[in-house]
Design a protein around this nucleic acid. Structure first.
Lengths: 344, 344
DNA sequence: AATAGTTTTGCAAATGTTTTCATAACTCTC
DNA sequence: GAGAGTTATGAAAACATTTGCAAAACTATT
């Protein structure tokens, strides 16, 4: 690659064109206030003429920041992660950072390997998703002393600052709401929980809240369904076609709830007249679907934005940053997919 | 940052621990076949003991590949782009590449600035979205002689290899299908086309195909609607509540079509009995919504995968790569949201 | 043991930039 | 004009790795 370059434009090329030294050109970019205006003008012109493009790698070697941030998520294929990454990316891009993005597909071993690769690239900081990580990941972060923020969850006393919502609170809110509508024949639909502490926390607290209210969910009504409209439609349709039908279904996220709404329609049920369906997340479209979905909002955009701000602060204000976690409150969104249990 | 590092582990540290030179350690990583097995073993042990993490920046300075690929998309917030980026990322990650991801929000000037930043990072290759780019972008790519692939569209004779679907073909297919069902009172809903050549191509060919069949779309039935379920639901509901109602609605993508389905429900219409609704894209959920959406499938996963393969080939096999574009065929998906125009 | 051929390894220079320190250039005051 | 103080700039060393070439080490043959 380098031997086929017709002309090599480096800082020396610019320096020659401007009749200054390379160190002056470097100052032009990094400490322009140290230069005379006339010198600045000459260099500016030389940079344009030569088409020089700075080499971030050479800066990085000096321990200068690479200007990159490693973003590690389970998958981009779930809209909610795409949304939070977009907000995060917008926030850090505003401060001149570029993100390195990788996904581990809920495989925490893979997460460790990706983190090492990020460290090879000397990222200035890292954002991980959720609280649950291989201990080797935490060790590596400590060892390398790299700024890190955990995104999406909130939990007091976590090892690194976390920016997100309290999944237990969200789960409790939706379960309590369904109970407050009088439902006692309640089914649950949650995604697999391996490598997914968000889903696990929600499921456990939902079941606990129901149990504390004297409601036990039969095994046949406790579904594990992959994150897919198609799968949840199929599972919901099967559930609603049984002889013994619940009056309410709590879904672990709004994609599952969307599929369940479609499944109810396909089973010939009217929502919420025949079956109440609720979700968690308040994803795009949740308020527009017919009927509008009752759910708990997890503010993805805000989470991404705050995580971006926190990590930039950690990188830039290393000495003064106070490592504070931030809890983004979940909000109960009462809409039209759930109603009080019927007395008939 | 560097002055607070408690211990600096570089290649010299490893060399000392293994009692070899730094160049031998370098060979261990890059040309292990040149080393005696015993030497390899010693170095391997020293790498583990010291916790050394290679510095990609130092490699990059040598004109060695940075191991990064720049990915430039309009936004991650549209599920279809998230899907294609995930497939692309998986494909290149398999070959050891990490993606730098940035979004330009349909602002082609911003795209140029982002591309420059990618070049500062000395990415090994770049993937852009669509065919339409500021000419400065093309000039910069030519000048820097960096491998580039255009993703999402297919057009013969494009300046760089493109991997995607023919948007004109997709638009023609869906328009012809609606015509073949006998519809002549047809409305259209497309997103804004600034900086979005995909949407423009689809809209133009849809209108052209209708026109060739003697169907003219009244201005009041030619909607421009932002990419949002909420907006399209509102616009569709308004359209369907008018005194003069179309028998069919062609939407420029499946998100708009999804919102239109919700809008029809909200307007008290039955789909497809009262109004046929079709889309383009076959997004997630399009086959599961009730009624299942008739649309043209653009194979996002395949596009992302093939684009990743093509770019990796361009980077690795620079001399032999033949720069071929690839057309991923759109597929007409006949489902339940459209039917023949009623004779009553 | 001597010689020829092959393999392995180290030295030194290179890559592109940044920064420290010394010196040159400039400005102001007497 | 001379001297003191301030500003601007260049030379050289540094950062972490890679690689070409020479020399050391090893192996095989006579």
């Amino acid at each position: 690659m380098s031997e086929t370059k017709p002309k090599k434009v480096d800082i020396l090329t610019v320096a020659k064109a401007a009749r200054v030294s390379a160190s002056t050109v470097s100052r032009y970019f990094n400490h322009p206030d140290l230069l005379k205006p006339a010198t600045r003008k000459r260099i500016d012109s030389a940079v344009r003429r030569t088409g020089y493009i700075r080499n971030r790698a050479a800066q990085t070697i000096h321990g200068i920041r690479s200007g990159t941030i490693g973003v590690l998520i389970p998958t981009l294929d779930h809209a909610i992660f795409a949304e939070v990454v977009q907000a995060f990316s917008d926030t850090v891009a505003e401060k001149g950072f570029t993100i390195l993005l990788a996904s581990h597909g809920y495989d925490l071993q893979r997460e460790y390997a990706i983190l090492r690769k990020f460290l090879e690239h000397r990222v200035d900081g890292v954002v991980l998703t959720g609280l649950d990580h291989d201990d080797a990941v935490f060790q590596l972060l400590d060892q390398q002393e790299i700024p890190c923020v955990l995104m999406w969850n909130h939990a007091a006393g976590s090892r690194f600052p976390c920016i997100g919502a309290d999944n237990e609170q969200a789960g409790r809110m939706i379960a309590e709401h369904v109970l407050s509508l009088g439902h006692r024949k309640i089914a649950c639909m949650f995604p697999p929980t391996d490598g997914n502490d968000r889903a696990l926390a929600r499921r456990d607290i939902v079941l606990q809240t129901l149990k504390n209210a004297g409601v036990s969910v039969p095994d046949a009504w406790s579904l594990t369904t992959v994150y897919s409209i198609s799968e949840s439609k199929t599972d919901a349709r099967k559930l609603f076609s049984g002889l013994n039908r619940p009056t309410a279904l709590i879904c672990g996220n709004d994609i599952l709830a969307t599929g369940a709404l479609y499944g109810a329609k396909a089973a010939g049920l009217s929502v919420p007249d025949d079956i109440s369906i609720v979700g968690i997340g308040d994803f795009k479209g949740s308020s527009d679907i017919e009927p509008a979905l009752t759910t708990v909002r997890l503010p993805a955009k805000r989470i991404g934005h705050e995580a971006g701000k926190a990590l930039v602060a950690a990188i830039i204000d290393q000495e003064t940053w106070d490592q504070r976690s931030l809890h983004c409150e979940p909000t109960l969104m009462l809409r039209h997919s759930a109603r009080a249990v019927s007395v008939g």
